[in-house]
């Protein structure tokens, strides 16, 4: 479980009134797909960095599985993985195997443990035959798969995806959602997805909506559908739901 209690964040070099995030409180549970929506500068990426422990909160409390992610990342280990939108910019190794090993080396694991984890993760993601391949020979979809695998190999409790579908073609997007469904509903992994695409919104089971550093919507999918027009206008209400409501109006 992720709990934010009155969390605020602002960058030190800016004036203290320019909040990136202002007194935000919410909690997220495993077992459903959690989505975060919002425009540029709404604070949604800040939330992702806070959960992953990349930055500390300036005020308020946050914990991930009962621990403070910032202290956790900087002292003993790893709670939540963060996957960014461009796969190209987050692959460190020159071969698939090396990239899978990078995070494990940071955790200070022994060779035997690393080898075991790399082999089983590669098998799970269908990367076994590619282990020795140079990263440059992979396709876009395979690169994204590698990014996910490289974080999953570290066995995090939560994974946060920052706009994961924007670099994929429509076919690869379908594959991505299959993986997410598997993670959330069969492997008990906590997943948070940040996206601007309206069609991604229809996949979210629990939705947080941010605007200018404030949480303006927090609820499950059906509550989002029932929300007032301002919310729909602001967060690009998906065409499929518009259609649904047109049909509903016709046959109440």
């Amino acid at each position: 479980m992720i709990v934010f209690d009155q969390v605020s964040f602002w960058y030190k070099d800016k004036s203290e009134t320019s909040f990136e995030l202002k007194e935000v409180s919410f909690s997220l549970n495993k077992g459903r797909i959690n989505g975060i929506v919002g425009g540029n500068g709404s604070g949604k990426s800040t939330v992702a960095k806070l959960i992953a422990g990349l930055i500390p909160a300036n005020a308020g409390n946050l914990d991930v599985e009962g621990q403070n992610p910032y202290q956790q990342l900087h002292q003993s280990g790893f709670l939540a993985g963060l996957i960014f939108q461009n796969p190209e910019n987050q692959i460190v190794g020159t071969t698939v195997e090396e990239d899978l090993a990078f995070g494990l080396e940071n955790l200070g694991l022994s060779h035997e443990v690393m080898h075991h984890r790399i082999v089983s993760t590669a098998e799970r993601f269908g990367l076994t035959s590619l282990l020795r391949q140079p990263v440059t020979s992979l396709s876009g979809g395979q690169k994204q798969l590698l990014c996910i695998a490289s974080v999953m190999v570290m066995e995090p409790a939560w994974v946060i995806f920052d706009e994961p579908t924007s670099h994929l073609d429509p076919w690869a997007r379908l594959d991505f959602w299959k993986i997410i469904d598997e993670f959330v509903h069969h492997h008990g992994l906590g997943v948070v997805i940040i996206s601007q695409l309206a069609e991604d919104l229809t996949r979210f089971e629990n939705i947080l909506g941010f605007k200018a550093g404030k949480l303006i919507f927090n609820g499950v999918r059906d509550e989002f559908k029932m929300a007032d027009n301002d919310v729909h206008e602001h967060f690009n209400f998906p065409e499929s739901w518009k259609f649904e409501s047109l049909m509903l109006a016709e046959h109440p």
């Binding site: 429509p170 076919w171 997007r173 379908l174 069609e199 229809t202 065409e239 499929s240 259609f243 649904e244």
Partner: peptide, 11 residues
């Protein structure tokens, strides 16, 4: 052939 949104195809 081309993955259209599900709602559209079924509609």
């Amino acid at each position: 052939f081309f993955p259209l949104p599900h709602w559209y195809s079924s509609a």
